[in-house]
Design a protein around this nucleic acid. Sequence first.
DNA 1: GCTACAACCTCTAGCGGCTAGAGGATCAAG
DNA 2: CTTGATCCTCTAGCCGCTAGAGGTTGTAGC
Lengths: 138, 138
Amino acid sequence: MDLTIGDLSRQTGVKIPTIRYYEQIGLLPSPVRTEGQQRRYGPAEVRRLNFIRHARELGFEVDAIRQLLSLADDPSRCCGEVHDITKAHLGEVKAKIARLIALRDELEAMVACDNRRISECRIIEVLADHGECQHRQH
Amino acid sequence: MDLTIGDLSRQTGVKIPTIRYYEQIGLLPSPVRTEGQQRRYGPAEVRRLNFIRHARELGFEVDAIRQLLSLADDPSRCCGEVHDITKAHLGEVKAKIARLIALRDELEAMVACDNRRISECRIIEVLADHGECQHRQH
DNA sequence: GCTACAACCTCTAGCGGCTAGAGGATCAAG
DNA sequence: CTTGATCCTCTAGCCGCTAGAGGTTGTAGC
């Protein structure tokens, strides 16, 4: 029970202001304090913050993490909801990939433009008149 | 020279507050005003705003668009810089796709978890202990 | 015990790219 | 001349942090 916020930061790779921010928005519980009001953490907080960091790295939104954490805190329940959250997130990731691939193809067609004057530049033309490309609304 | 901001919004599909925001950050020039201080636009502004919208849809950042616009305004120059901006952006898009695909694969492995108790849930385990997955830092 | 100084504290503001709402003025049609 | 849609400015909020000011606390060495 004697890690400072700096220790916690080093052990988890989460920056100090971010730790305080997570506490502020209720992802991390308020820790014990020294007489001088400095935060002190234990192993439970290290685990919880690692959990949060991993979930963020995997692209889960803070709200989803809040749900995952409250589910994880209750180990007797069925993990169907966890499953659902992950699946929903997977769906979003897949959709994002599809959009980015369409975008990549379009940009690749655009860079086929070879150093001419701007007055003849395909890129500028495509941007100025969207009819020239195949882009669809997101 | 007689489109209201609402007309401009309808013609370009850009919301009214966004148009004012673009003016504020200098992407759109300050338009002429009526005696009562209402904005009035002409075809040049429609073109410019369409250009901005297309570039945003293609994921260009506002700063990149600012550069593209100033280049587009000078049609005698060689379009090498335009090319470079687009290529850099393409590189970012490709990198983002690679990261998302790694992420998708990981999430797909995670959802292979089939409705057991949370105490045995693979998803929660992966999140709690990153050693269990193959994820690399961004 | 005392000093030095790193690390901590709170608070506020900023990033990008908008979006929303309050409260009031203007414009165009009938 | 009235109605009502549209416009105006201004401020604040969204997400997920990040940075900085200005002040306090904890710890190591002497």
